[in-house]
Design a protein around this nucleic acid. Structure first.
Lengths: 189, 189
DNA sequence: GTCTATACAATGATAGAC
DNA sequence: GTCTATCATTGTATAGAC
């Protein structure tokens, strides 16, 4: 059954989404996923560390982009402007196709405690990475922590409204609007 | 081996902490935990839904207390005062013995990705519960979300400094001091 | 250098006996 | 309510095939 149709990751992701939508996450075995992707279970576990990660791999990029956005903020930027730079760079990483993927993926994640747990871990990990990089940049770890929370909340809330809408503008617009609302609420500093 | 020495939960928790500290979380099997507690593996899984939850059970109480604190806030309270009531009630739920438990437990959790994942889920769940209850109380879901983040951050940061210190005052003091710092940073509204 | 075959340990579920 | 026993599945390890 050897194969080098090259996109093994992509085939496994598509097979997973299809099967999870058809039969549910828990009712789908890793053997079935591998079979539908034209691979074996062994290969699946060589490419992904576990079953959950099939749906989440690629999110390491999110941390890289958020931290990059902090490093690229101009020398004179205020703490909130640095946060804005981070969240903008993070959202800019998403192509238009993210909307379709999210519409297929999000209901699956919502249906399984195991997947929600992994999603929570990703959210906390992104928050912690921003917290750390912001602390290095602005010095105050408390302010950095609160800003990290606010930025990540804007990112997820903006993502959710954008995925649910048909607004043709990029995801970044929705995320930055959300962030601006938070800034206004808190009496912008 | 039948037993009704009554504190099965407590025996399993203590056995887990001991064994995880001795041999590591992953290297300890559920059979070994059950054996040290004087029970069988089947009974362990009747009392706890999975191996991780042995260390985290009891945290449902945290959500109840946080929500209670919101409901009990006086009619005239500002949004931040309502949040303060929530976080105070949450922290008040911890007896002095929490410090010793935390000192034993926290390094174990930090050593295992699987446990960190469960811890992240608990943090997000508490945040979501506060978000929801605050939204019901004050109306604005955006303000409620940001406040929930801030409150939960104060709770965890206060917990961490309190566990690391030998300050004889209750945990609530450390948590509320942290929260007051955040309020000051954001130019109290 | 990627894919596969096989064997293995551990989690968690289930059915039935005392 | 606890136990014995059995089972499917996840995830690991190793060695080998193309």
């Amino acid at each position: 059954m050897g194969r080098w149709e090259p996109d093994a990751h992509g085939r496994l992701l598509r097979a997973s989404i299809d099967l999870f939508a058809e039969r549910g996450y828990e009712a789908t075995t890793t053997a079935q996923i591998a079979e539908r992707a034209g691979l074996t279970r062994t290969t699946l576990f060589r490419l992904f560390p576990d079953k959950r990660e099939i749906l989440f791999k690629g999110q390491e990029m999110l941390i890289v982009r958020a931290v990059e956005g902090i490093e690229r903020a101009p020398e004179t930027a205020t703490p909130f402007e640095i946060l804005r730079s981070s969240i903008k760079n993070l959202a800019d990483g998403h192509p238009a196709s993210t909307r379709a993927t999210g519409r297929a993926l999000d209901p699956i994640i919502a249906s399984s405690p195991e997947l929600q747990e992994r999603a929570s871990f990703k959210r906390v990990s992104i928050t912690n990475a921003i917290h750390e990089a912001l602390t290095a940049r602005i010095g105050d770890p408390r302010l950095a922590g609160v800003l990290a929370d606010i930025g990540v909340r804007a990112y997820y809330a903006g993502y959710n409204t954008w995925v649910a809408s048909d607004d043709p503008r990029p995801m970044t617009d929705a995320v930055l609007e959300e962030l601006a609302e938070y800034q206004r609420l808190l009496g912008n500093d």
